[in-house]
Amino acid sequence: MVKYSKIAIALLLALVVWVGCTPEFPVDEDGLLITERAECYVSNFELLGPDFQTVRTKNAEIDTVAQTINVEVFYGTDLRNLYPQFSLVTDAKLDPKITGKVDFSDRVNPKTYTVVSGNRKVRKPYTVNITVQKP
């Protein structure tokens, strides 16, 4: 009986040690899981005004080869107070992060956002070009 207990305890201990030594999944500096995925692109782009309603006149044109996002906004859109929203491929993330409203009024120097792949090894900068609807 005692012998069996000893064996059982030894097995349990071995299991605990084994589980404890299993390597954890790697995470990046934001605490996000680093995966195997190397895909790196923007799948959708939205632009909201100060009233959190879309300011796009039509769907944004996303060129994943040229790495540009061309979007036309309504006449009278206040370009200094816009909220961009990016949809990215699975596991990818955006740099810099969007934390609030963004000033897109400097159209000579358009804003650039970098998409970082799931394995954090591929980085693709996307340029957001905004045009305003004209009468």
Binding site: Y75, G76, P135
Partner: peptide
């Protein structure tokens, strides 16, 4: 205004 949405402002 044709071509833009101005309406009530």
């Amino acid at each position: 205004i044709p071509g833009v949405t101005f309406n009530h402002a």
